[in-house]
């Protein structure tokens, strides 16, 4: 009897998972706002991805990996861009988790994004895995 209950529970879990495999909600006003901020910033960050100054981290953030690729006078500004981008990315992961009613998904969403940013990075950009930077 107990086993039956367990099986029923398992079936329910699988069923709920199947239901959850639809689409994630990403069209809330908060997510759109964060997204458009990141989109505007991308124009400024893109040359730094290309030069290798900024790389895509393994944890879904961006990192200033080699500031020497940027003229000295501009390094502070790039530090600022990286800080703002990471604040937005953290907010994005949190908001997606929240918009889908599962704040506890934040870490999973961050991991998924981390993989996708790296997978989708353009050739020549630097990406991080296992603490090591490599050029795509």
């Amino acid at each position: 009897m107990n086993a039956l209950k367990r099986i029923a529970l398992l079936a329910a879990l699988v069923a709920s998972a199947a239901w959850a495999q639809g689409n994630l909600e990403i069209n809330t006003p908060a997510i759109s706002q964060i997204k458009s901020g990141m989109q505007a910033r991308h124009a400024q960050l893109a040359p730094h991805y290309a030069s290798g100054a900024v790389g895509l981290g393994a944890d879904g953030t961006v990192a200033l990996r080699d500031a020497s690729a940027v003229p000295l006078a501009q390094r502070q500004a790039v530090q600022g861009l990286v800080a703002q981008e990471n604040a937005d990315r953290a907010a994005l992961y949190r908001e997606i988790a929240r918009a889908n009613g599962h704040p506890e998904w934040e870490a999973d969403i961050r991991n998924t994004f981390a993989q996708r940013w790296i997978e989708r990075a353009q050739p020549g950009w630097y990406v991080q895995s296992g603490g090591q930077w490599s050029r795509k």
Partner: peptide, 17 residues
Amino acid sequence: NIYFPAAAAEKAADRII
């Protein structure tokens, strides 16, 4: 693993990226 919709999350991530 079952509970977190990994495939849907990837799709969502790709759309945002």
